[in-house]
Amino acid sequence: MIKTIHCNEIIQAVADLCLQANLELPRDVQNAIEKAKNKEQCALAKEMLEQIQKNHSIAKEQSLPLCQDTGTAVVFLEIGQDVHIDGGLLYDAIQQGVAQGYQEHYLRKSIVSHPWLRTNTKNNTPAIIHSEIVAGDHLKITLAPKGGGAENMSSLKMLTPAAGVEGIKKFVIQTVKEAGPNPCPPIVVGVGIGGNFEKSALLAKKALLRPIGSRNPQEENARLEEELYQKINALGIGIQGFGGNTTALAVHVETYPCHIASMPVAVNINCHVARHKTVIL
């Protein structure tokens, strides 16, 4: 059976997601911050975590965005192959929803139309859209506003197979260390390994959407997640770079088969305002 979804419904859903994602963090992120606060040894860092939680309550009560950088709108689509879109083009509807959401809800517009000519597009479009065709008759839309501070500290390297898993660890740790206080720690670290150049980057970004506390189902990957998590938190960067034992709330690793000659590694860093919100139509 084919299910028909009208563009107007998509526009409205996306506009709503823009607001919701920017006002309230997913439960798992909130829990991770609470857990970090209870564990934190450094008094200054503990106080900073309390202020972060206070920010969550004020944002919710006052309907103000958690962070003034309401980000690039990154949209992940899961399109069931039994879905028919009516009334226009799917991608146009997504862009219109983002434009409407950012304008109506007083979110900051941070997108410029050209990398060095830099004229603001004034409605935060274009969004960056990643889509996947899946089985079923649903349309799943996830909106993840991504701030510039943390995105700027992300990195990708084409390692050779000889570098091995040690080379991967070294690169991830080095990226986090160099980022220091700039991505607004505590951070979430998404690591994409394998595939090719662009696949690794996409894996890293998608890894940021996984619930905090979840482990990659493949044992070796889960082990790497745990080891990186321990090592990153031993760096002592801490909340906002002020020191202490919470630098990362989570490290998520995703892998994919790759060419005999390569071993791409992408590290995408997210700040503690690890926003994403999903709706299923």
Binding site: C67, D69, F242
Partner: peptide, 13 residues
């Protein structure tokens, strides 16, 4: 001085 990056609603208050 530094304030908390990302605590923007708190600062607005």
């Amino acid at each position: 001085f530094a304030t908390i990056g990302g605590a923007a609603a708190l600062m607005a208050g």
